[in-house]
Write a protein that binds this DNA or RNA. Structure first.
Lengths: 270, 270
DNA sequence: TCAGAAATGGACTATAAATTCCATTTTTTA
DNA sequence: TAAAAAATGGAATTTATAGTCCATTTCTGA
C-alpha cells in the first residue's frame, strides 16, 4: 500500500506515526508492539513478532505492507543493516575497489576514512573500562616498561615508545634483532607491553611466554580474543580493526596506544 | 562434538578460546571471524558468516558443532536471546563517558576517539584529489622510494616502509642514524617521501632541501601549509591532526599513509 | 436490522535457509 | 613414500519461515 519503503530507521518511525492513527484493531496492536520493540525486529521471525503483538502472522504481514515494505523480510533487512552498523566487510569492498582499476586514490581514501571511523566507534563500544584501568595501573607501577611489537605492529610499538620517552616514563623498545638475548633485561618489578596482530610474530609470543612464566606482568594489545596471547596471564586489550591484505588501518589501535601512554604518564607523575 | 553447548556469551567466549588453538586452517578462519564479529551472528545467515570468514557454509557448520552447538541455528539462538537490542550509539555513549567517567582512562579514550574521528573527517575535506593523484603517480614511477620520518613521524615512516615491502615496492627507510651519509643512496629516478610534523626535525628538512636541489622529486606528508617543506618544490599532502601535548593522534595521518601505499602498490603492479 | 465492505484467522504454498552427505584434496604418520 | 586419517568443498536434502489465499467474522451505515 501507498508509496515506497522507508530507507532508514528515521523514515520508518515517521511512517509508523503517520499510519498508526488510522489503523484497525489488530494492525494497531502491531504498530504498538513494534514501536515498543523495534530492536526485536532484527532478530525475530514473523511468528514471534505476531505472537508478541497478539495477532496472527498474516496480520503482521499486512502491517508490514502498509508500512510500505514488500513483506516482513524487507522490513527486517532494514533493521539488520542498521544494527550491523558500519561494520560491513571493508576489506572485501577495498579489494574490489583495488581490483577495478577505477579505484582512484580518492575513492580509496574515502573507504579507508570510513573504515577508520567505524573502527574508532567500535573501539569505544568494545573496550572494557575495568580492563583499561587495570592496564594503566599495572604499567604505572612498573619500574621499567618493556615494549615489543614487530612487523606490522612495529609502528605502534615505536609510537608508544616515543610517547613514553616524552613523558619521562622509563621504557625500552625491544626491536627483536638480538633474538632472545634481551629477555635478561627484563627484571622483577618491570612490566612487558606486547603488541601483536594476526599473523602473530613468533618472537613476540615467545617473549610473552618466557616473561609471563617468570611472573612478570604482561599487558597485551592485540586483536580479538582468540589471539595466542590469551593462553598466558595477560591483561589483554583487544582492538578489532579492518585488515586489508597485509595492512591494517591502525586508527583504533593507535588511538588506544595514545590513551594508554597519556594515562600512564599522567598517573606516574602524580 | 564434545560436551554441551555454551549457555551464555561468556561461556561461548571461553569455549572459543579453548578450541581455537587446535583448529585446522578453515575452522581457524571461522574462529577469527567470529571473534571479531560476534555482534553479527544474531543477524546473519550461515552463508553470510561463511562468506565473511572466507569459507564454505559447510565448514562454518562444522565450526558451530565444534563449539558444542547442534548447528548454526542453535548458536544463533544464543546470540539472539542475549541480543541487547542495539547498544547506545556512538554519540550517546560518548556523552555518557564524558559526564560520568571524568578523569579516568575511559574518559581519555572518549576524547581521543572523538579527536580521531574529527581528524578523519577533516582529512576527507582537505585532501585535494589532484594532489593525491600526483603524489601517487610520482611515487609509482620511482625506481626506488626513499622514506624519511623521524621522532614522532617515525611510526608513520616505518608503517609505510612495511607496507611497501609487502607490496613489493622497492623502498628504503632512512633511519637517520648515520646523519647525512645516505643522501648518496638517493639517485636520479628515485623519489623521496618525507614525513614531518610540527617541531620539524632538522634532519628531515635538510634532506628534503639537499635532495630537492638535485632535482629529485619529493612527496611530503606534513601538517598545514606553513610547514618549512613548502619552500621547496614538493608535492605536499597536508594533514591537520588534533594534537595533544607532545602527541598527535595519528589516525588521519596513518589513514593517508595506507591509502598512499595501497594506491602506489596497485599502480605499480599494473 | 440488514447489505456491503473491511478486517481477520488459519490453512496452504513457495522460498530461502540450514543441515547433511560424500567425493576429493590435504595432511599426518608409520 | 605409501597408507590412513583428517579436512575440505560443493551438491543434494530437509526444515523452517515468509508469504498467499480465501472462507469466516466483524464492523459500518442506511
Amino acid at each position: 500500500m501507498e508509496d515506497r519503503a522507508p530507507a532508514s530507521i528515521k523514515q520508518f518511525e515517521e511512517r509508523l506515526i503517520d499510519v498508526s492513527e488510522s489503523l484497525p484493531k489488530r494492525l494497531r496492536q502491531c504498530a504498538d508492539y513494534v514501536a515498543a520493540n523495534k530492536d526485536r525486529i532484527a532478530v525475530s521471525t514473523v511468528a514471534e513478532m505476531a505472537e508478541g503483538a497478539g495477532v496472527q502472522p498474516s496480520a503482521f504481514m499486512r502491517f508490514c505492507r502498509i508500512l510500505g515494505f514488500s513483506g516482513f523480510s524487507e522490513m527486517q533487512r532494514l533493521f539488520r543493516e542498521f544494527y550491523a552498523g558500519g561494520w560491513p566487510d571493508y576489506s572485501t569492498r577495498l579489494k574490489h575497489l583495488r581490483e577495478k582499476a577505477e579505484g582512484s586514490a580518492s575513492a580509496l581514501l574515502g573507504e579507508f576514512v570510513d573504515a577508520g571511523r567505524a573502527s574508532l566507534e567500535n573501539l569505544l563500544k568494545t573496550i572494557d573500562a575495568k580492563t583499561l584501568d587495570d592496564a594503566v595501573d599495572t604499567l604505572a607501577k612498573a619500574q621499567m616498561i618493556h615494549i615489543i611489537g614487530l612487523r606490522r605492529s612495529f609502528p605502534v610499538a615505536s609510537y608508544i615508545s616515543y610517547a613514553f620517552e616524552k613523558m619521562n616514563v622509563p621504557a625500552m623498545l625491544h626491536s627483536g634483532v638480538g633474538g632472545l638475548d634481551n629477555h635478561n633485561a627484563i627484571r622483577t618489578g618491570d612490566v612487558l607491553l606486547a603488541v601483536t596482530f594476526s599473523p602473530y610474530s613468533a618472537e613476540t609470543v615467545d617473549m610473552v611466554e618466557a616473561v609471563s612464566a617468570r611472573g612478570i606482568p604482561v599487558v597485551a594489545l592485540t586483536d580479538t580474543i582468540v589471539s595466542p596471547l590469551r593462553k598466558f596471564e595477560t591483561i589483554t586489550l583487544s582492538v578489532s580493526e579492518v585488515d586489508f591484505g597485509a595492512f591494517r588501518s591502525l586508527s583504533a589501535t593507535l588511538c588506544l596506544a595514545i590513551v594508554l601512554s597519556v594515562a600512564v604518564g599522567t598517573k606516574r607523575s602524580e
